[in-house]
Design a protein around this nucleic acid. Structure first.
Lengths: 257, 257
DNA sequence: TATCATTTGTTCGTATGTATC
DNA sequence: CGATACATACGAACAAATGAT
C-alpha cells in the first residue's frame, strides 16, 4: 500500500487501498485486516474515517468484522448447497432430487390466510380469498444451511384431496394426492433475489452482505390450472438452485438472450 | 411514533421507529423521510446517531437517500423483467422466449481466455485450457434493465462448427450450429445471487442495496458432453428468472423439499 | 476467577464541503 | 445568492466483547 493521493473522499481512498491489498492477495482470505488504530497510524486519518472505510468494505462483503477481535478477509468461495429443483416421477409418485436431507428446525406452523395482491393472481384467486398455509423452517445438518419453505393451498385444491385436514404434508405427498385426483402435473417457477428483511436475516441466520434467494413455484394441473403455491427462501451465500432445461416444441417468437 | 424506550443501541431504536412508520404505511412509498435535523429534534439524539440509523435503513433497501435533497421511501414492488429461461425448438431452430428484446449497449467483446478452477470442471476441461469467449452488455429499452452475458466456447466445441471464426454469435445461432453438427441438446442451469462487486455495480448501474442474480448455463450434447458455458448477470431489483419444470422419468432417491 | 490490554461499537460535539432548490 | 439537506472529517469519551495474564 502506498501513500494516499487518489481522488474521492478520504475514507474511500482508504477503502480502495485495503480493497486492493485484498484482491491482490496481500491479505489472504481468513487473515486479519490491520486494526483500526493501525489504519489510523498508517494513513494518518481519524477513527471515524477509518470506520467509514471499514464499513464500506463490510457492506461489499469483502471483510467480516468481529466485535472485540478484529476484521478478517472473507473466504468468498463458501461451501454451497446446490438445490436441485427438478422433479422426478414414477407413475404417481414424485420425488425431489438432491444430495441434502432437509430436517425441520421447529414444528411446521399450519394456519389460514388470505390471498394477497401478489399471491392471488398467481393462483387465479381474488385478493382476500381464504387459503390453507404452512411454514417450515428446515436445515441441512451437513452444512448448517437454513431454508424457509411456505406452501399455500387454495380451498378449491384442498377439496376432494383431503389436504385441508393435513396442510403440513410434504410437497411430494401433495403432488401425489393431486396426481391421484386426476391431475397431470407440471410446474412454473420464478427465481429472484433481494436484500433480506430483518426477520429473514434472523431466522435464516444470515451474516452481513448476503442476499436471499427467493423462488415461487406454481403447481399446474389439468388445463394448466394453478393448484398450489410454494415459496422458498435461502441464503445466497450458502445455496444455489439447479434446473434442467429441455427444449419445448413451441412456436418461436423472438430471439436473442 | 412514540418515545424511545426499547432495548438496543440508540441508532437502532431510531431506525426501528422509522422502519415501523414505513412498513405501517405512515410514510408511503415515494414520500420523504424526515430530514436529519428533524429526526435529531424528534428523538433528541445527535447527528451521528441519526446518520447511523439512516445508513441502516439504506442498507436494508428501505429508503433511498439523495444528496442535498432528502431521504425517500423506496417503492419496493419495482417494475420487473421476467426472463424466461426455457428454450423452444422447431427442428434445428432454437428460440429463447420472453417479452423483452435485449439490445446491445456496446459492441460485443470477443477474446480468448483460459479455463479457471470454476469454469474448467463445468466444461470438463483442465484449468488453463484455452477458450473462446465473448461478452455482451445488453439492455431492455422498454425498462432500461441492463444485463451482462458471457459465453465460453471450448476449442473442442468450436472445431467442426466454425464457431471459432464467429464467437460473437447469438446463443440461438450457436445452438443451431451444434444441432446441425448432430448434437441433441439439453441444458443445465444454476442460479445464485450475491452482493455486486464495484465493477458490476457500475456496468449494471445498480442502486444501493441491490443484489445481482447470477446464472450459469451449460449446454449439453451427445453423451451429456458439456459443449458451452453461458453466464448471465442482472439486477435482482429489476429482473427475475422463470423456469418450466416437467417431471423426469428418473428413479426416486430421497424425498423432502 | 478476576483483571487487564486490545479491539470494535456507540454516542456525543463541532466544523466544513457540496448538492438541490 | 441563500436556505436547506446530505457528505465528510476531526476530536473525545465510554461501553462491550475478546483473549491473555
Amino acid at each position: 500500500m502506498g501513500e494516499i493521493q487518489r481522488p474521492g473522499a478520504l475514507y474511500q481512498q482508504v477503502a480502495a487501498e485495503i480493497r486492493n491489498a485484498i484482491t491482490a492477495g496481500e491479505i489472504p482470505p481468513g487473515a486479519p485486516v490491520p486494526s483500526e488504530s493501525q489504519l489510523m497510524d498508517r494513513y494518518g486519518v481519524s477513527r471515524p474515517t477509518v470506520r467509514n472505510a471499514v464499513a464500506a468494505l463490510r457492506s461489499e462483503g469483502l471483510i467480516e468484522v468481529i466485535h472485540g477481535k478484529g476484521s478478517y478477509v472473507r473466504a468468498l468461495p463458501a461451501p454451497v448447497n446446490t438445490i436441485n429443483r427438478s422433479v422426478a416421477s414414477t407413475g404417481r409418485t414424485f420425488s425431489v432430487l438432491g444430495d441434502e436431507v432437509w430436517e425441520p428446525v421447529e414444528e411446521p406452523a399450519a394456519y389460514r390466510t388470505t390471498a394477497t395482491a401478489v399471491t392471488g393472481p398467481q393462483l387465479g384467486l381474488d385478493e382476500g380469498e381464504a387459503l390453507f398455509a404452512c411454514d417450515w423452517l428446515l436445515i441441512d445438518p451437513k452444512t448448517g444451511t437454513r431454508l424457509m419453505h411456505r406452501i399455500l393451498i387454495p380451498f378449491a385444491t384442498a377439496e376432494g384431496t383431503g389436504l385441508g385436514e393435513a396442510p403440513d404434508s410434504q410437497p411430494t405427498e401433495i403432488y401425489a394426492a393431486l396426481a391421484k385426483a386426476g391431475h397431470k402435473l407440471w410446474w412454473s417457477e420464478t427465481v429472484g433475489a433481494r436484500i433480506p428483511r430483518p426477520d429473514e436475516r434472523a431466522t435464516l441466520q444470515l451474516t452481513d452482505a448476503t442476499a436471499v434467494l427467493h423462488t415461487t413455484r406454481i403447481t399446474h394441473g389439468i388445463d394448466d390450472q394453478a393448484l398450489l403455491l410454494e415459496e422458498l427462501r435461502v441464503s445466497a451465500d450458502r445455496a444455489q438452485l439447479a434446473y434442467r432445461i429441455t427444449p419445448d416444441k413451441a412456436p418461436a417468437r423472438r430471439a436473442r438472450a
